[in-house]
């Protein structure tokens, strides 16, 4: 097990040498990720682990990618997507232009899910999906739109439960154990690195999706990120979080109204 002081030393190195600030990440989870990587890469001592992080830029890249979580899936929580489909998107259809931000999109499964929803709501042609993450390798995967074939059975079930009526496999072509999603879906996606800890608002959106990202942040950082979202949402815009996340204890709460049972809030002031 790693000592608290050693975690502090590593985090301080990352900040001083590379500008990555993990000091407001949920500590228990971050510590577990660091220990996991230490074991995985079989460093005999903390000193050697630290030396590698400090002196090897390629390893630094691996370190940042491995201690941040990139696990995601398509149409996770189908009832959430059903709500988007039946309650939220219909209120956007009259707009001339629709901007969606996927903040912390990881490998992009949710961005493709959203593109499918927008397409089936006949509004993909006038939408733009901005997908950001701090992890360039994950973003590159997202940009390619290639996912493991083995996940498709689960995703297809999720899709149907979310109210999808088409054959899910009509959205991709399968080859060599992988699938590539229809490039028409990706035409409306813009991928870019963005660090929620240190980067600013960059546009005004109608819908911000940030699901299961805030769980990795402590409360002060959650509050800062929620304020960033508040600055980035247009009037009557929507903010969607993960099923176990909330804005209830943040400073932006008074300006938002939760939409039904799902973790979707609308900006009302």
């Amino acid at each position: 097990m790693i000592a608290e002081a050693e975690v502090d030393i590593l985090l301080n190195d990352l900040y001083e040498l590379y500008g990555y600030d993990f000091s407001n990440y949920s500590r228990a989870s971050l510590k577990r990720r660091i220990v996991r990587l230490w074991m995985l890469d079989k460093f005999p001592s903390f000193a050697e682990f630290r030396y590698r992080v400090k002196s090897d830029a390629d390893y630094l890249k691996r370190f940042v990618e491995e201690i941040t979580v990139t696990v995601t899936e398509m149409f996770r929580d189908p009832l959430f997507y059903r709500c988007l489909r039946t309650e939220i998107l219909p209120t956007l259809t009259a707009k001339p232009f629709i901007r969606v931000w996927h903040a912390g999109c990881a490998t992009g499964e949710e961005v493709y899910s959203m593109a499918i929803l927008l397409k089936e709501s006949q509004i993909l042609h006038k939408s733009l999906l901005y997908a950001t993450d701090l992890n360039p390798t994950a973003l590159e995967k997202a940009r390619r739109g290639i996912f493991p074939l083995g996940s498709m059975k689960q995703y297809s079930e999720n899709y149907i439960e979310s109210g999808g009526i088409l054959d899910f496999s009509s959205y991709y072509t399968a080859q060599y154990g992988q699938v590539k999603f229809d490039e028409k879906l990706a035409e409306k996606m813009i991928f870019s690195t963005h660090n929620l800890v240190s980067d600013r608002s960059f546009n005004e959106f109608d819908l911000i999706m940030c699901r299961n990202v805030l769980i990795y942040f402590d409360k002060p950082l959650q509050d800062r990120v929620l304020s960033l979202f508040d600055e980035s949402l247009g009037q009557l815009g929507y903010l969607a979080l993960g099923t176990k996340e909330t804005i209830n204890f943040s400073t932006i709460k008074p300006n938002y109204k939760q939409q039904g049972k799902e973790k979707i809030w609308r900006k009302i002031a």
Binding site: S26, R27, A28, S29, R32, R33, V69, V71, T72, N212, I215, Y216, D218, G242, K244
Partner: peptide, 14 residues
């Protein structure tokens, strides 16, 4: 997971 300040954290990792 449990944080040192006796709050829960959730984690959607592997």
């Amino acid at each position: 997971l449990i944080e040192a300040d006796k709050t829960f954290s959730l984690d959607y990792s592997e």
